Simulated scan of single mutants.
Amino acid sequence: MRLEPLAGDDPRDVLRALRAALGAGPAVALGAEGRLQPGEVRPGTAVVVTTSGSSGVPKSVQLSRAALTSSALATAARIGAGQWLLALPAAYVAGVQVLVRSLVQGTEPAILSGRFSAAAFAHVVSGMHSSRGGERVPIYTSLVPAQLQTLVDAADEDAGVRRALASFEAVLVGGQALPVALRERAAAHGARIVRTYGSSETAGGCVYDGVPLDGTRVADTGGELRIAGPTLADGYLDDPELTDRVFVRDAEGTRWYRTGDAGTVEDGVVRVTGRVDNVIVSGGVNVSLDRVERVVRDVPGLSGAVVVAAPDERWGEVPVVVAARADVSDPDGALVAARASAAGAIGAPARPARILLLDEVPRLSSGKPDRVALKRLVAER
Rank of each mutant, 00 (worst) to 15 (best):
A251L: 01
G253M: 04
G253V: 01
T254E: 02
T254L: 00
T254S: 00
R255E: 13
R255A: 10
W256A: 00
W256I: 00
Y257G: 00
Y257I: 02
R258E: 09
R258H: 07
T259P: 03
T259I: 07
T259H: 05
G260S: 09
D261H: 11
A262R: 06
A262V: 05
A262G: 15
A262H: 04
G263N: 12
T264S: 15
V265L: 11
D267C: 14
G268N: 11
G268T: 12
V269S: 14
V270Y: 03
V270D: 03
V270C: 08
R271F: 05
R271G: 13
R271Q: 14
V272G: 10
V272F: 11
V272I: 15
T273I: 08
G274H: 13
G274W: 10
R275I: 10
N278L: 12
I280G: 03
V281W: 06
V281P: 02
S282N: 10
S282Y: 05
G284K: 12
V285M: 10
N286A: 15
V287M: 05
V287N: 01
V287W: 01
V287S: 02
S288M: 06
L289H: 02
L289S: 01
D290G: 14
D290E: 13
D290H: 13
D290M: 09
R291S: 13
R291Q: 15
R291N: 11
V292T: 04
V292P: 00
E293N: 08
R294K: 13
R294G: 08
R294Y: 07
V295Y: 03
V295C: 07
V295P: 01
V296K: 04
V296P: 03
R297L: 09
P300S: 14
G304V: 04
A305N: 05
A305W: 02
V306M: 05
